[in-house]
Design a protein around this nucleic acid. Structure first.
Lengths: 366, 366
DNA sequence: GGCTGGCACTCACTACACTGGAGTGCCAGC
DNA sequence: GCTGGCACTCCAGTGTAGTGAGTGCCAGCC
C-alpha cells in the first residue's frame, strides 16, 4: 500500500530518516516532528489555510506548547517539508512534506465503510459493454474522492482479433469491423469508386475473417495477398484493402482513457497558482492520447502516488496522482486513478483507488 | 441565416420594432438607437467592460455627440436592451439586446477567409470512422470560435441493422455486435453460466444475423422465437438472448454528443456570475444524455441562436447557443453548435457554425 | 538538554478616508 | 432635435492606521 520503492523509515523511537531532504546536512527529524508535519498536512488539507504553531498545539494531540511546535516547524522548514508563504503566516506543506505524510501516515489502508459499501453496490449492478463499465467506474471514483478520476482501459496490445467482417452501409461506403478479445471493436469506413454487389462484399468479408481471426492486433495481420485461387479477384482485393485499413488504424491505436468528474477541476481552480492551470489540465484531458501516456508508468507497484513536482509533465507540477493497476484475467489490465491538487486528502484517495482497482479487477476477471 | 421565426424588423427609415420589449408602452427604437446598441454590443464583446456614451461617440461611426448617445442609451435601457451595472458605469447589453443585435447585425453571413480555408482543409483531410469525424469536427468548431463546441451525431432512430453477430471473447463471455447503417456499432456483453462451443455460437450468430438484418433499430427486432425447427435449441436460445440484450440497450440509446473545447469554459468562468457556473456546465456536459436533449429542438431552422434566458435549462441561463442542423443523405442528420457566455462574438460563431454544418452535411452525404 | 512562557517584531488583512475619473441625468440654448 | 455644459454619483485606486495571527528568540525551569 505504500508508494514508491523506498524503504519504509522507522517512525517510532529511531529518528525518521529525511532521505530525500534537499539539505546537505543529512539531518533527521524525530517522531514528534513527523507528528507536527502530520497535523499541518491534515489541517491544511481541511482548511486550505496556512497552519500556525498555535493551531497545532491547541489541537492537543501532541501535548506540547506552541513554542515547541514552532521549534519543530523551523526544523521541518529547514529540511524542506514545510514552507511559509510569507513571514508571520502559518506553514504549508511542500511536495516533500506530502510525500512523508503519504509514506508514513496515509498507508494504514482503512477504507471507510461508506466507500466500501458504495463500491460494492456499484459492482453488484449490471453493466453492459466494457466501455460503459470503465466509464462509469471513473465516475464512481470521482464521486468517492471528490476529484477527477481516470480509468485506463486494458492495453490494446494484448488483444486478439476474434472476428472480422465487411459490411455495406451504402452502395459505395463499406465498414470494416473487427471484434477484439478485450471486448472493443475496431472499425474503419472504406469508400469505393464504384458500386459493389452484396456477393462480393460477403466473399471479401469471409476472406478477411479467415485471415484475421486469431491474429494479434499489434504485429498486425498480413493482408492476404491476391489469394483464394483466381476465384474472385474483386473480393480478394477488397479484403486486402479492408485489412490494410484496419492495420493502419489499429497500429496507432492507443489505450482508451475514461475521465470522470473533470468538472471538479473547475472548483479546484483556486488551488492552482496559475489562473489557467485548470484550463490547461482540461485541455490535456481532451487530448486523450497524450494524457494516457502520462499514466502508463505504473505497472508493478500496488498503489502509486505522484505528488506535484514528482510528475514529469509540466502541466501536472501542481497536481497529485494516485494510481493503481488492476488485473485482467491473469495478465495486467489497465490503471485506475485520481488526480487533483497536491492539497488532497491522500488517505481517502488511496483507500478509494485501492478498493476500486481491486474490485474492478475481480469484476473483469471473474 | 436569421434566427427564430420572427419577422425581420425594418431598420432603415422606419422605426425598428421592439417586438419583444418588456415595456408596455410599445415604444419603438429608431435606426440610430439600433446603431448605438450595435456599438455597445461590439465594444462590450471585445472588452468585457461596460460601455459608456463617450466611448461610443468617440468611435465616430455615428457622428453625434456623447450627450445624444446618452439620450439614446436611456431609451435603450428603458426598452430593456441595455442595463447599467450601477449608476455612473457604462451600459451592458441584456439578453434582449443581444437578440436584437443578432437579428439585425449578425446575419450578413460573411465568413472570414481564414475560417473558410480552415474548414476546407479540415474536410479535405481523411477521416476514418464516423465517430472520429464528428469528434474532430467539434474540435474544429471550438478552434474556429474559441468556445466550447458540440456535434450531435445522426439520430439513431433512423438507423437500420446491416449486420449482427455473436462473438466469443472468453469461454463464458460473448459479445453481441450489431453494425448499423449510420456507421455506428452497438455491442453488448453476454455472460453465460456454462461454457459454449464455437459451433453453437456460430449457429446463434447466423440466426441472429438473419433475424435482425434490415430491421430498424427502434421498434426493434422481435427476438426470433424458438424457431429454426428443433435443430439447435441452444443456438436459437442464445440468439434470442442476444437480440434481447441488443434491444434493451439500443432502445434507450440516445444520440451521441461530441464536445470539443470544453476546457475553454474554465477560461470563461469570469464571464459567469456564479462561481460554480462553469463547473455546473462541465457537469452537464459530462452527462451526455441530458445535454443532448437540450440541443435537440432545432430541426427546421437554418441557424438558431438561443441567448441566455431564452434557454429553458437553468444551467444555460447565462449561456448562448448557436446551433445548426446538418443533413445526412436526404434525411436530417444531427446538430452542430457552439456555446459560451452570452458575451460572445455572434457573427463569428454564426459564420463558423453555418459553414461547418454545411460542409459536414456534404461530407456525410457525398 | 529540552520544554516552556514571555516578549518584541513582522506583516497580511481590514477599515476608513480621500481623490481622480468615467459616466450619468438634466437643462438651457442653438 | 442635437449639443455643450454642469452638477452629481460612485467605482477604483491609494495612503494610513489598527488589529491579530504568527514568528523568532531568549531566559528560566524541570
Amino acid at each position: 500500500m505504500t508508494s514508491r520503492t523506498r524503504p519504509d523509515p522507522e517512525v517510532a523511537g529511531d529518528p525518521v530518516e529525511a532521505d530525500d531532504a534537499p539539505s546537505a546536512s543529512g539531518t533527521t527529524i524525530d517522531e514528534r516532528q513527523a507528528a507536527v508535519l502530520r497535523a499541518v498536512v491534515e489541517r491544511y488539507v481541511a482548511t486550505a489555510q496556512p497552519v500556525g504553531s498555535g493551531t497545532v498545539a491547541r489541537a492537543g494531540r501532541l501535548g506540547v506548547s506552541s513554542a515547541t511546535v514552532r521549534n519543530d516547524m523551523t526544523i521541518l522548514e529547514r529540511e524542506g517539508y514545510l514552507v511559509q508563504p510569507h513571514t508571520s503566516a502559518g506553514r504549508v506543506p511542500t511536495d516533500l512534506g506530502y510525500r512523508l505524510f503519504v509514506d508514513h501516515f496515509a498507508a494504514d489502508g482503512q477504507v471507510p465503510a461508506g466507500t466500501r459499501r458504495a463500491v460494492s453496490e456499484f459492482f453488484a449492478g449490471a453493466h453492459h459493454a466494457l466501455e460503459d463499465l470503465l466509464h462509469e467506474t471513473s465516475h464512481l471514483l470521482a464521486r468517492l474522492t471528490d476529484h477527477a478520476a481516470v480509468v485506463v482501459g486494458p492495453p490494446a496490445e494484448s488483444a486478439v482479433v476474434r472476428s472480422a467482417q465487411i459490411v455495406a452501409l451504402q452502395p459505395r461506403v463499406l465498414l470494416v469491423v473487427a471484434v477484439l478479445s478485450n471486448g472493443s471493436v475496431e472499425k474503419q469506413t472504406l469508400t469505393l469508386d464504384a458500386d459493389t454487389d452484396d456477393a462480393t462484399v460477403a466473399a471479401a468479408s469471409a476472406i478477411l475473417d479467415a485471415a484475421l481471426r486469431g491474429a494479434a492486433v499489434t504485429g498486425l495481420p498480413v493482408p492476404p495477398a491476391a489469394a483464394r485461387g483466381a476465384g474472385d479477384a474483386a473480393a480478394s482485393d477488397l479484403a486486402r484493402r479492408g485489412a490494410e485499413a484496419l492495420a493502419a488504424h489499429a497500429g496507432q491505436h492507443e489505450d482508451l482513457v475514461y475521465v470522470g468528474g473533470a468538472s471538479r477541476l473547475a472548483a479546484e481552480q483556486s488551488s492552482f497558482s496559475a489562473a489557467d492551470r485548470a484550463e490547461r489540465l482540461l485541455e490535456l484531458i481532451e487530448e486523450q492520447v497524450a494524457f494516457a501516456s502520462l499514466l502508463h508508468v505504473v505497472l508493478d507497484a500496488d498503489v502509486t502516488v505522484r505528488i506535484g513536482s514528482e510528475n514529469e509533465a509540466e502541466e501536472l507540477q501542481e497536481c497529485s496522482l494516485v494510481l493503481a493497476p488492476y488485473p485482467l484475467g491473469d495478465s495486467l489490465g489497465g490503471t485506475v486513478g485520481v488526480f487533483g491538487p497536491t492539497r488532497m486528502d491522500y488517505r481517502r484517495a488511496l483507500a478509494a483507488v485501492a478498493v476500486v482497482a481491486s474490485r474492478l479487477g475481480k469484476r473483469l476477471s471473474g
